[in-house]
Amino acid sequence: GLPPGWRKIHDAAGTYYWHVPSGSTQWQRPTW
């Protein structure tokens, strides 16, 4: 699974990851 606080988001551009507490997003899968 993903580290705490991360969500996987799907949209028209593809899949990305959202860090809910900080509001940051990234294309790379977050690592622990």
Rank of each mutant, 00 (worst) to 15 (best):
residue 6 W to A: 02
residue 29 R to S: 11
residue 4 P to I: 03
residue 23 G to E: 03
residue 9 I to G: 04
residue 17 Y to Q: 00
residue 25 T to Y: 11
residue 31 T to M: 11
residue 3 P to W: 02
residue 21 P to F: 07
residue 23 G to S: 04
residue 25 T to G: 10
residue 9 I to F: 05
residue 3 P to Y: 02
residue 6 W to D: 02
residue 15 T to E: 12
residue 12 A to Q: 09
residue 4 P to S: 05
residue 8 K to Q: 14
residue 3 P to A: 04
residue 31 T to L: 12
residue 16 Y to W: 11
residue 5 G to N: 05
residue 5 G to Y: 05
residue 25 T to W: 13
residue 3 P to M: 03
residue 22 S to K: 02
residue 20 V to T: 08
residue 24 S to N: 14
residue 6 W to T: 01
residue 17 Y to W: 06
residue 31 T to K: 09
residue 31 T to P: 07
residue 29 R to H: 11
residue 27 W to S: 14
residue 25 T to H: 11
residue 13 A to F: 14
residue 24 S to W: 14
residue 6 W to K: 00
residue 12 A to H: 07
residue 13 A to R: 14
residue 21 P to W: 07
residue 19 H to L: 04
residue 21 P to T: 09
residue 20 V to R: 04
residue 20 V to M: 10
residue 8 K to Y: 08
residue 7 R to Y: 11
residue 28 Q to E: 15
residue 29 R to G: 06
residue 25 T to V: 14
residue 2 L to H: 01
residue 31 T to H: 09
residue 20 V to H: 07
residue 31 T to V: 11
residue 17 Y to L: 01
residue 4 P to W: 03
residue 17 Y to I: 00
residue 23 G to W: 04
residue 13 A to M: 13
residue 6 W to S: 01
residue 16 Y to H: 06
residue 9 I to W: 06
residue 19 H to P: 01
residue 20 V to N: 04
residue 32 W to Y: 10
residue 5 G to S: 02
residue 8 K to A: 14
residue 29 R to A: 11
residue 15 T to P: 07
residue 12 A to L: 10
residue 16 Y to T: 02
residue 16 Y to D: 04
residue 9 I to L: 07
residue 15 T to W: 10
residue 16 Y to F: 09
residue 11 D to W: 08
residue 22 S to T: 13
residue 16 Y to V: 07
residue 2 L to K: 10
residue 6 W to G: 03
residue 23 G to K: 05
residue 2 L to A: 06
residue 13 A to W: 14
residue 16 Y to P: 02
residue 25 T to S: 08
residue 7 R to S: 10
residue 30 P to S: 02
residue 3 P to G: 03
residue 19 H to R: 00
residue 19 H to W: 04
residue 9 I to H: 06
residue 4 P to G: 05
residue 24 S to A: 14
residue 13 A to N: 15
residue 4 P to H: 06
residue 2 L to T: 02
residue 30 P to N: 01
residue 32 W to D: 10
residue 18 W to N: 07
residue 32 W to N: 10
residue 15 T to F: 08
residue 27 W to H: 13
residue 23 G to L: 03
residue 1 G to N: 12
residue 29 R to P: 15
residue 10 H to S: 14
residue 28 Q to N: 09
residue 13 A to K: 14
residue 25 T to M: 14
residue 27 W to F: 13
residue 19 H to K: 02
residue 6 W to V: 00
residue 21 P to N: 07
residue 4 P to V: 04
residue 20 V to G: 07
residue 20 V to F: 09
residue 28 Q to W: 13
residue 32 W to S: 09
residue 5 G to L: 02
residue 18 W to A: 07
residue 11 D to G: 14
residue 19 H to E: 02
residue 2 L to E: 15
residue 30 P to R: 00
residue 26 Q to Y: 04
residue 29 R to K: 14
residue 21 P to E: 11
residue 18 W to S: 08
residue 11 D to R: 07
residue 14 G to E: 07
residue 19 H to V: 03
residue 26 Q to G: 03
residue 29 R to L: 12
residue 13 A to Q: 12
residue 21 P to G: 06
residue 9 I to Q: 05
residue 30 P to A: 00
residue 25 T to E: 08
residue 1 G to F: 11
residue 8 K to V: 15
residue 8 K to S: 08
residue 18 W to K: 12
residue 22 S to I: 03
residue 11 D to Y: 06
residue 6 W to I: 00
residue 5 G to K: 00
residue 10 H to G: 08
residue 19 H to Q: 00
residue 27 W to E: 12
residue 7 R to K: 11
residue 3 P to R: 02
residue 31 T to I: 12
residue 8 K to H: 08
residue 18 W to P: 05
residue 10 H to W: 08
residue 30 P to F: 01
residue 32 W to L: 10
residue 10 H to F: 10
residue 12 A to V: 10
residue 26 Q to K: 05
residue 1 G to K: 12
residue 12 A to S: 12
residue 5 G to H: 04
residue 14 G to S: 05
residue 24 S to M: 15
residue 28 Q to I: 09
residue 27 W to Y: 12
residue 21 P to Q: 09
residue 32 W to M: 10
residue 2 L to V: 04
residue 13 A to G: 11
residue 11 D to V: 11
residue 4 P to R: 04
residue 26 Q to V: 04
residue 4 P to L: 04
residue 23 G to R: 02
residue 14 G to Q: 06
residue 11 D to A: 12
residue 31 T to G: 11
residue 4 P to E: 07
residue 5 G to R: 00
residue 22 S to Q: 02
residue 20 V to Q: 11
residue 31 T to A: 10
residue 16 Y to L: 09
residue 27 W to N: 12
residue 3 P to H: 01
residue 20 V to D: 07
residue 21 P to L: 09
residue 26 Q to S: 10
residue 30 P to H: 02
residue 26 Q to L: 07
residue 24 S to D: 13
residue 6 W to R: 00
residue 5 G to W: 06
residue 21 P to K: 08
residue 17 Y to N: 00
residue 9 I to A: 06
residue 9 I to T: 03
residue 30 P to Y: 01
residue 13 A to T: 14
residue 23 G to M: 05
residue 26 Q to T: 09
residue 29 R to M: 11
residue 4 P to K: 05
residue 5 G to A: 01
residue 23 G to A: 03
residue 27 W to R: 15
residue 28 Q to V: 10
residue 16 Y to R: 08
residue 19 H to G: 01
residue 23 G to F: 03
residue 15 T to A: 11
residue 29 R to E: 14
residue 3 P to E: 02
residue 19 H to I: 04
residue 15 T to K: 05
residue 27 W to P: 12
residue 13 A to Y: 13
residue 2 L to M: 06
residue 29 R to Q: 12
residue 22 S to R: 01
residue 21 P to R: 06
residue 22 S to F: 02
residue 1 G to T: 11
residue 24 S to L: 15
residue 12 A to T: 10
residue 30 P to W: 00
residue 29 R to Y: 13
residue 25 T to D: 04
residue 6 W to N: 01
residue 3 P to T: 01
residue 10 H to R: 11
residue 22 S to Y: 03
residue 7 R to P: 02
residue 18 W to T: 11
residue 30 P to Q: 00
residue 26 Q to E: 06
residue 11 D to K: 07
residue 15 T to R: 04
residue 29 R to W: 09
residue 24 S to Q: 15
residue 27 W to A: 14
residue 32 W to K: 08
residue 27 W to D: 12
residue 2 L to R: 03
residue 31 T to D: 11
residue 24 S to H: 15
residue 10 H to Y: 10
residue 25 T to L: 13
residue 9 I to R: 05
residue 10 H to T: 15
residue 27 W to L: 15
residue 2 L to F: 03
residue 28 Q to S: 08
residue 4 P to Q: 05
residue 13 A to D: 13
residue 8 K to P: 07
residue 16 Y to K: 06
residue 32 W to G: 09
residue 19 H to F: 05
residue 1 G to A: 13
residue 17 Y to D: 00
residue 21 P to A: 10
residue 7 R to E: 10
residue 1 G to V: 11
residue 17 Y to F: 07
residue 7 R to D: 07
residue 13 A to S: 13
residue 22 S to D: 05
residue 14 G to H: 06
residue 13 A to L: 14
residue 8 K to R: 12
residue 20 V to S: 08
residue 18 W to Y: 15
residue 12 A to R: 10
residue 24 S to Y: 12
residue 26 Q to R: 06
residue 32 W to T: 10
residue 10 H to L: 09
residue 28 Q to D: 14
residue 14 G to P: 03
residue 5 G to V: 01
residue 21 P to D: 11
residue 17 Y to G: 00
